[in-house]
Design a protein around this nucleic acid. Structure first.
Lengths: 201, 201
DNA sequence: ATGTTTTCTTATCTTTTGTTATCGTTTTAG
DNA sequence: CTAAAACGATAACAAAAGATAAGAAAACAT
């Protein structure tokens, strides 16, 4: 089970046996029911998780409205990275969309590893660089693409069959920065273009 | 002169004398005329600069149109960080808005320092974490704020007197993800609210 | 200095998006 | 299993934003 985390981490940098053994005992498992929150508003995030099974969404509450800003799926790191880095209370919620299973370790543990093994410092940098690239990718779609293009890119990025069945559409709309009605229109427009009007009308 | 770079770097982590001396000889200066490009489309970015004097903007060319996506001012690092990290050709241009002066060093130099002094590895991580926080801050304004709120936040973030005189308004509009006409309307709306209609009309 | 270019505002028209409401369907909870 | 809630498509109307053009003002070049 924990081997999966090692594999996920090894995607960035190989980890030697002793380095892994200093880490492994500090990893715990967590099971979470649908709608449970693993990061709450106002609470500082001190744990980092890897999602083994299930799905989460992240949202801000603005004027009583939930604005979905991120999705988490299998094999991805789940945490409010901003809250971790700034040691500041979270301004967002991370909530399970399905019953889920996680591997967890504390930020404290990671920082201890930074000091013990320089390689984990590199790991920390690669993680930061990686989440930066993701954030930029996402930012660029807002600056350079229309909502429709944004939706199509979103589908391409994920397994579009899977995501459309696992994630309610109005969460996706929020994620794309548009209203559910608007997304519904975009979908109708795309469907119309894919299947042009029949010759005999 | 180069001391300023040391100061900028020391904002993240203190740098010892020997660590600095391993770096200092590899820093060069560069003067750039207005409209000159220091990062070109299609070219991989291999240099990191610190802006001593002047101002730059970063833009993507989409359907022949220049979409401004970032501004750089004094004491900030200037580079296409994505291109640096991925060692991939730049999809954007970084161009001087004013005659400018830079301190430059190569990515190669930084990576050599990573290997020589672990502290530079930490420095690299802190830089990555920092640019991530900036990217997220910006992303959130698109997801959570209206164009008008975005404009007001933008003014608060910078010296609003300065930025409005140094940066053409249509660049700002592009940066905010709206058209110049739209920004002009927003400004008119704000001005109207600030100075309500006189009693005698 | 002066003619040209760039920049900003404003007006008009069009398109897109948001808002609200309705309806049928699906999901959820007791 | 059934009532209630949530979800998605669609329509109608309102609001906002884009496109375009015209004109004034500022910046720029020679």
């Amino acid at each position: 089970m924990k081997e999966i985390l090692r594999q996920v981490m090894s995607q960035t940098i190989p980890i030697a046996q002793d380095e892994w053994e200093a880490f492994e005992p500090y990893i715990s498992t967590k099971t979470v029911k649908k709608r449970e929150q693993i990061v709450r508003e106002g609470q500082t995030c001190t744990e980092i998780s890897v999602l083994m099974k299930g799905a989460f969404r992240q949202y801000h509450v603005i004027d009583g409205e939930e604005k979905t800003t991120f999705f988490y799926f299998e094999n991805h790191f789940v945490c409010n990275y901003e809250s971790v880095l700034l040691r500041a209370p979270s301004d967002l919620v991370i909530e399970a969309m399905e019953d889920s299973e996680l591997l967890c370790f504390s930020v404290e543990t990671l920082e201890r590893l930074y000091r013990l093994y320089p390689k984990y410092e590199i790991f920390g940098r690669l993680i930061a660089e990686n989440v930066y690239l993701c954030a930029m990718e996402r930012l660029k779609t807002f600056l350079l693409n229309s909502p429709e293009e944004r939706y199509l890119k979103f589908l391409n990025h994920h397994d579009s069959q899977q995501i459309l069945t696992r994630v309610p559409q109005h969460y996706i709309a929020s994620y794309l920065g548009i209203t559910p009605v608007s997304l519904s229109r975009i979908r109708a427009r795309i469907a119309r273009q894919d299947k042009p009007a029949p010759i005999f009308s």
